[in-house]
């Protein structure tokens, strides 16, 4: 059995390994942009060494970023595609992220991304006293004139394990998303006039959204009054988002929260949406078993009535 001398040798070995790793570890830890409680925005190295360099640093204002985030909507996968979309982020999330991401993008190197996780409280039911905490986590970078967000978690349950009185370990591992493998979510991110799903030769990434800054800023202004293009998630959604009118602002949407804890959005479907694209998107949802056969048939009938 080892004696203290041998143990000391082992500890020295550990220490050597630690010191060897220290420079990179320090660099990694020396990059927190914003931290509050269990929420964070942090600079990290790109997750894929073969990825093209980002266009960092870049100058964007907090207001610009907030405007972009406010346009983002989602729908729960178990719902009829005609259902009402909800905000991805709460207003508090948007304000916190807007400020932190603006600072982070201004500091980031081309080889760095920003990762974030924020915890938003969503009302359990309309007017309910109690709210449910939800986590959004992801990876942000600016490239080719677009703000990219890869979501690892979207409104995931926020739970902590109590291990010997220490309440700091997540029940579900934090996931910041990555460029190489798509993360499957229980929600469907909805492209809109300002944001599209990332499309590559490998297909469309349902967890990766690309936002045009200038368009987003204009779209989020009350005067522009953009509309979310509903039921257009899917293979061709990225290329077919239309900016048509008639919607509520993000602020008004935040005020409307449903019994399921999901935020209502007063947007209505785009009448100008291309029927073929809508049918393709609908078919894709059915093929991925995100909607029931009955919902698929009903929605298809509804779309065809527009012919």
């Amino acid at each position: 059995m080892p004696r203290p001398g041998q143990v000391a040798g082992l500890l020295v070995g550990y220490l050597f390994a630690f010191l060897t790793c220290l420079p990179s570890a320090y660099a990694a830890s020396n990059s927190v942009i914003w931290e509050r409680g269990d929420q964070i925005v942090k600079l990290v190295r790109q997750d894929d060494d073969s990825a093209a360099p980002n266009d960092h640093p870049t100058s964007m204002t907090a207001d610009e970023i907030e405007a972009m985030l406010e346009t983002l909507r989602l729908r729960y996968a178990d719902e009829d595609p005609g259902g009402v979309p909800v905000h991805v982020f709460t207003q508090t999330d948007i304000e916190n992220l807007g400020k932190a991401l603006a600072i982070g993008l201004g500091r980031a190197a081309p080889s760095q991304d920003l990762i974030f996780h924020v915890i938003g409280a969503r009302r359990l039911s309309r007017g309910a006293f109690a709210r449910r905490n939800r986590v959004c986590a992801g990876r942000v970078f600016y490239r080719d004139g677009n703000l990219n967000i890869i979501f690892g978690q979207i409104q995931s349950p926020y739970r902590k394990k109590n291990v010997y009185g220490q309440i700091d370990e997540d029940f579900y591992p934090r996931n910041y998303g990555n460029r190489t493998t798509a993360t499957k979510h229980d929600v469907v991110l909805l492209p809109n006039a300002t944001a599209s799903l990332y499309q590559s030769s490998g297909g469309v990434r349902d967890d990766w959204i690309v936002i045009k800054p200038g368009v987003a800023a204009a779209a989020s202004s009350p005067d522009a009054n953009p509309e979310l293009a509903l039921a257009t998630t899917g293979a061709t959604a990225a290329a077919t988002v239309e900016a048509t009118a008639n919607t509520s602002t993000a602020a008004s949407a935040n005020a409307n929260e449903t019994a399921s804890g999901r935020t209502e959005d007063a947007s209505t479907p785009s009448l100008a949406a291309d029927l073929e694209q809508r049918l393709k998107a609908l078919k894709r949802l059915r093929e991925r078993d995100l909607i029931s056969e009955n919902a698929y048939q009903a929605k298809m009938k509804e779309i065809l009535q527009d012919l």
């Binding site: 409280a121 359990l124 039911s125 309910a128 006293f129 109690a130 709210r131 449910r132 905490n133 349950p157 926020y158 739970r159 902590k160 394990k161 109590n162 291990v163 309440i167």
Partner: peptide
């Protein structure tokens, strides 16, 4: 009381008023 009054999932981290409330253990 909490579970029955707000139809929440038991033991889910919740915000009650301004308080984050959590029941946890093993």
């Amino acid at each position: 009381l909490m579970v029955t009054s707000i139809n929440a999932q038991a033991f889910e981290s919740m915000k009650v008023g301004d308080w984050d409330v959590d029941f946890s253990g093993n």
